[in-house]
Every structure is written in C-alpha cells, then in structure tokens.
Design a protein around this nucleic acid. Sequence first.
DNA 1: GATGAATGAGATTTCATTCAT
DNA 2: CATGAATGAAATCTCATTCAT
Lengths: 190, 190, 190, 190
Amino acid sequence: MGTVPERLIGAATRLFADKGFDRVAVQEIVDLAGVTKGAMYHYFGSKDDLLHEIYGSLLRVQTERLELIAAGDGAVADRLHAAAVDVVVTSVENFDQAKVYFRSADQLAESQRLAMRLERRKYHERFRSLVEEGQDAGVFRDTVPADLTVHYFFGAVHHLGSWYRESGTLSAEEVGRHYADLLLGSLRDQ
Amino acid sequence: MGTVPERLIGAATRLFADKGFDRVAVQEIVDLAGVTKGAMYHYFGSKDDLLHEIYGSLLRVQTERLELIAAGDGAVADRLHAAAVDVVVTSVENFDQAKVYFRSADQLAESQRLAMRLERRKYHERFRSLVEEGQDAGVFRDTVPADLTVHYFFGAVHHLGSWYRESGTLSAEEVGRHYADLLLGSLRDQ
Amino acid sequence: MGTVPERLIGAATRLFADKGFDRVAVQEIVDLAGVTKGAMYHYFGSKDDLLHEIYGSLLRVQTERLELIAAGDGAVADRLHAAAVDVVVTSVENFDQAKVYFRSADQLAESQRLAMRLERRKYHERFRSLVEEGQDAGVFRDTVPADLTVHYFFGAVHHLGSWYRESGTLSAEEVGRHYADLLLGSLRDQ
Amino acid sequence: MGTVPERLIGAATRLFADKGFDRVAVQEIVDLAGVTKGAMYHYFGSKDDLLHEIYGSLLRVQTERLELIAAGDGAVADRLHAAAVDVVVTSVENFDQAKVYFRSADQLAESQRLAMRLERRKYHERFRSLVEEGQDAGVFRDTVPADLTVHYFFGAVHHLGSWYRESGTLSAEEVGRHYADLLLGSLRDQ
DNA sequence: GATGAATGAGATTTCATTCAT
DNA sequence: CATGAATGAAATCTCATTCAT
C-alpha cells in the first residue's frame, strides 16, 4: 500500500486535481489515505506543504528531461519537436500531477512561490533558448518574439487539463505530436 | 460611483481576478464596494451568483463579436486571423473579467456550470468551424484535427492571465497579432 | 442580561481569573455567555482581544483615580497613603478583573503588549513621583531607591490574587489600610 | 553536557521561565535538550511532572536555608533581615527556577498542588513565626497582622520576576538588602 | 431598500501522550 | 534505553448565509 507519506501525496494529488486545492479539506485527504490528521501533520508541515511537494515533482522530472533533449546533437527543429512532444506526454502520463501543477500555482504559500517561480522560469528559458537557437540559425522565423511563442505553447499545454480525457481517442503520444507540429508549424519560415 | 450592483460586480471582479474565487470572502467584496452584506444578498442570491454574472458577461461579448467576424465576407484566413486578434484584444481590454473567466470555471455551481459549458462550446465550435472551413477549402492543412487546434489556441489565450502584464511593452493589439500569426502559421499549408 | 459583548467580557473575566488565559477555551467563554462562537468573533477579533479589553479597563480606572489622588493638596504622606489604599480597594472590588490583570500580562499578543506596557509604566511613574516628592521633602527616607520601593509595593498588590479571599475576615478597606501602613512604615524616616 | 534528565530539566526550566508552562510544547523542550520525546517520557511521566520537579527544588533549598537562619542565635530583627535577604538572593541566583516557581503554581496538577501548598505554607509559617517572635518581644509593632505582612513581603519577592533584570545595575545582594530594609522598616516600632 | 448581529458548520492546526520496535 | 510514527481530542478561527428591524 506504500508508506504513509506516499499515500498522503497520492490522495492529495487525486483530490487537488479533481477539485482544486481550496476545495479539498485536509480531512478528505487523510480519509482517502486511510490515516489520521495527526499523521499528516507528522510528515507535512501544512496543507501547503503537500501542494508544494506535488507541484515540484513533475516540474523536476520535466526539467531534467528537457535538459537532456535540448542538449542532444540533432537538428534544432528536431530537438524542439522532441521537447514539445515530451512535455505533453509526461503531462498526460502524470495527469493528476499535471492538473495540480496547472491549476494551483497561485495557491502556493508566499514563501514557496518564489522558489517555484525560479524553477519554472528556468524551464521556460531552456525551452525558449531552443526557439532562439533556431531563429539565430535561420531555421525558425523571428517575426514573433521567442518569449511570447513559448508562453503561447505552454498555455496550450496547461490547457490540456481542461479538455483532454485519458479515455478519449487520442493517445498521449498523438496529442504530443500534434502539439509539437502546431508549434513547429508556427515557427517554420515561410 | 455607479449603482450598488455595479459596484459589487466591480469589486468582485477585481478580487476574484487577483486571488481566485475561493480566496475571496464576501466581506472583502462588500467592503471594497462600500456596502454591507445585507445589500449584497439583496441583489445577488449568493457568492456563486456574483461569479456567474461576471463569468458570463465577457463570454457573451466575445461570442457576439466572433459571430460578426466569422460571418464577414473576407477570405477565411483573414476572418480567422481577425477572430484570433479579437479574442486576445477583448480579453486584455477586460483583463480582470478575463482572468476570472480563465481561472474560475470549475468553481461555478453545478447548476450554472452546464449553462456555461454550452455557451463556451458554442464559442469553441464557431471558432472551429472557421478552421474547418479553411481546411475544406484547402487553405489550411488538416494534418492536425481542427478541434485540437482550437483547444491549443484557446489554451494560449487562457494563459494570458498568467504572464501578460498591462504595464509591459506589448500592447493588446500586438499580442493579438502575434497570437493570430502563430495560429495561422501553424495552419498554413506547407 | 446585558448586551452580548458585555456578557462575553463578563464570562471571559470570570474564567480568565479562575483558570488563567491559556487554560480557558473560547468554547467555554461563549457557553458561559450563552452565545455562539460566531457571535464572539463578530465582536472581538480574537481571544487575545478579549484579554486586552479586560486588561485595560481596570488599569484605566486606577490610573484616573491615582491622578486625582496624587494631584490633591494634602501632605504627600497622606496622598501616598490614600493612593495605596485606593489601589488595593479597587483591586479587591474588581477582583476578577484584577486577577486577570495580575496573571495574564505576559499572555497579551505582541502588538498589544507595548501599548499596555506604556500605560502601566505611566501608572508606576506617577506613583513613584509621589515617593520621590516625599523623599525630596525630607519626609521619606531615601536609602532605598523610589523605583525599587514602588516595585516592592506593587508586587505585594499583585499578590493579593493569590491569598486574599473575599469571603475572609478582612474587608478591602482593611487590607488597603494595612498595605498602605506597611508602605508608609517602610518609608518613614527614622 | 549532563545526564539526559538534567538536560531536560534545564531546558524546561528555561522555557517555562520565558514563556510560561502552557506556552511551551513538549517538542520544544526535547529539542532544546537535544533528545527525543520518547526519552522524555522515559524519565518523566508527563509534562506536569517536569514542572513539579522544577517547582519543588528551589522551594526545598529556600526552606532549608530559612530553617537554619531562623534557628540562629542573633537578635530576631537580624535573623528576619537575613532571611529576607536570603530569599531574594537565592531567587535571583536561580532566576529561571524562581520565575517558574512564581508563575506556574496554578498549572500544577491537582494531585501535586496539595503537596506543594503544604510546603509553601510551611515556609510561609516559619517566616511568619519570626515576625511574631519580634512582635511578642515588642521589637516589631503589631498593628498589622503578621500573616498579612508576610503575604505582602512575598508578593514583593514574587514580583521580582517581572521587573528585575540580571543585566541591570543592582546586584542580587543589593536588592536583597533593600527588600529586607523595607520589610524591617515597616515592622519597626515607631 | 438596507442593516448588521448572529448562526452553525467546518476549516486548519497543535499537542500531550502511547506504543511497537 | 531510546526512537519516532501515529493518535485523537481539542484548539482557534472563518465564512456564507439568514433574518428581525
């Protein structure tokens, strides 16, 4: 059944993803995890801590993978495409975590928000550097600022939680490829 | 200073946009509006009602404008471009309303959610029909499903609330054009 | 039966006097006052606020009376004697308030502590100035610093809560006169 | 570093003196002592036990010393003076213990309270017997009941915790002498 | 039309203590 | 001897909503 902290994280992830951080009571989390509130506060300092933990784990994984993909030695268009597919696939494969991540950024406690923003920015900038690399190489057009393009793309990714259903006809891989195609398409020089 | 209901809607819009529906107390709203709780419950049945009121108004405006733009008689690519610019511009020009709209869909009461989903879907479908029209005409490529493309684009639009700052260097119009260019770019046949 | 805030103050005074601030639950206070917790938080911002309210009221009364007595035109020894009697008598006549005041100074919230310390110091200093006036006039001996003497006397007064019983044989007036006699005795020049 | 129980008593003494019994969590005590909760409950039955242990030790020492001083063969005024100095000096020299003793009498568990009250009363009575001895001998005036005088003096002593600062200009010995002078002064026959 | 006192349910968090290891 | 995970009861406080006036 996993350790108590694992069960708590699991329960919180599912509930936060479903209802949003503010709509979930600590009591619901511990009930679903099968432990008592005292146990939760033994392992986590607060409800915020739980969110912070969930929030960070997917971002860390994705950052690591982006690092690897971006540092590859293929053409920049291929690397960007692979990175775009990857962020979609890992988001869908960890859909509850991703939904929490997409929805609850603003609910993080002040103190944790800064640290998280830094990590997010790092991810954003690594991604943007790929776009800029392509622009500098003349492979991508530069009529739209790279920064804005990246916001545009991540907006689309964040929105996955609002429409994508795991039970639907499209696999994670397929959505990933479509998203990547749309991104590359909009960057392709005419 | 406006009527009491107007002041209430204004206060609620600003606060919901800033902190999210669940983080705003009714007391804060009435304080900011300069009225009492009794007055609020005189005009609105509940806190949910306030959200509902705000939620719908921007969507109604945008739907109306989309209708007009889509029914124009220019080339489909031009109409889609204009529609894309428009949704961004109107979102930025009513930024607080838009933020509420982007963030708080899931907080609507069950009963209101359905009605809203219908309106949203209508908007989505009108937009999609433009994409499909272009695909049918052979102007846009159809390797990516029109439905997914529209989700992709609206994801980007919804994300505006997370990164766009009215005080920044980009005007609403500029962002709108960039967004539209990215959309059209990704649809352009190679 | 008095207004709700009055009943709350009354209940809190009795309970704080009996068991000490930290040993009293808000629930007990509202039960004794016959209202709900919500009502309490409607009138008082916190449990601390309640203490603050109680704490200040006796001090204000005593400060006012000391002012009057000290400003009288009798001999300094007579005025000091009257002041000493008065602080004992008013403390015993408002015994619950006095006990709260004596016991719970350290439980006041940080923010309120400063304000209260100022008021207390003012009282202390007015009292001390009487002692100094007598020393300057050669009526009281000055081998013991006035400051220390005042601490000594107020220590005795604060201790009333630990031993004096209203049901005992000594009236407030009698205790007051004894205390004043002890004070004056220790100041009398040999 | 001392044994584990010693470290626990030391930590508890400091914390109780600083914040009061009810404001100190067992976790804080064991943290400061550098041990775990299990260890604490190995040596002490409860948090109350810790208080009880601290509470008694200073009283025992002071009782013993009072016994010796009172049983001396000097004049009664000298013995009372010495006793008064001594209680102040030992209180200041064990200031944390004394503060706990002064503040936390009411926090003792019912069962322990009785035992403690007996010891306190014994101390009080021994002290009072000195006063009475002087009154019987005609050295002290008897216009104020001995009992009340002793309460008065111990009130002043208990109050030390509220105003005396070890870093101040007065040494323990000086304060002791001043306090004793005030006591003797108020007893001196005119 | 509007007030604001009052409710009552429920929120998060704390904490002394126990107990299997 | 000692650990530290886990409990469970209780603590303070919040808040949308109602209702007599």
